[in-house]
Amino acid sequence: MGAHILKRLISAIPVLLGITVIVFLIMAMIPGDPATAILGSYATPENVEKLNRDLGLDKPLVTRYFIWLGNMLSGGFGRSFSLNRPVIDEILDRFNATLILAGVSFVLCTLLGILAGVVSAARQYGLADKAITFTVLIGISVPSFFLGMMMILVFAVNLRLLPVSGMYAIYGGGDLIDLARHLVMPALALAVVATGVIARLSRSAMLEVLRQDYIRTARAKGVHERRVIMGHALRAAMVSIIPVLGIQAGFVLSGSVYIEIVFQWPGVGRMLVDAILKRDILLVQGGVVFVAAAYVFFNIAVDVAQSLLDPRIKT
């Protein structure tokens, strides 16, 4: 198993490099003078000229990539002009908030989605199945940012049950309960679409599996039907559910950008949008590379989970 994890980690290196190449190429599309873009429009002409020289703009693209990569890695992604601090510091400050939001949301959509899918399959064409199918259809069609706004309107403004936005109360907050109260709505709003997708997939994966011969064997042994479904069938269905969880995690991470804006959540997503509006290029590219790298490692974890579940995968 250790060797397997190591192998996956090594295979991540080219992917990580690929990510930097793509981000570099996108940044090379910036129209006009990159130094101005990096330093902001109030930079002095001397600084701009010096930076242009450092970036090696007269050199071929490949050389420029390595200069760029070197600058990024050695200098902690550079210095943000709009915040006047190193990009890496800002990212690390923000990343926790995103991780909490997206992480809780991901756990929610995984649990709820699989549960809904299993119930739906076990009660196929029954009332529960129809109710779940309908809810899922609505869920995957509502834009998360609109849903978030409506939740604020109902639960925070009208019912006054939950705080409108932010991560902690400004006065007297800061403990775990405060965080949880602030987290409920954004985490739910973010989880809804992925829950729907996972529920659909789990339902069809379960139905597929329930036709298999080994399910008949379990029944022939006299195993209780509840155990047949929650044990034998679900376990086998997980083999096709887990890879989709990895993909859905990417969607949850993507959706967190909107949710962070709607709920004023101090995460990386909001940082990125602010940075784009302020044209703070270094902050954007640092944030993108960092989060994409985190996602690559998450997918390695998914892969390892898959090989733990399925002994037929050579480890």
Binding site: G18, I19, I26, M27, L253, L272, I276, V288, A292, N299
Partner: peptide, 13 residues
């Protein structure tokens, strides 16, 4: 390998 929005944000940036 990118969560889709990161790519979109990078391009818009």
């Amino acid at each position: 390998a990118f969560p889709y929005i990161l790519l979109a944000l990078a391009i818009v940036a």
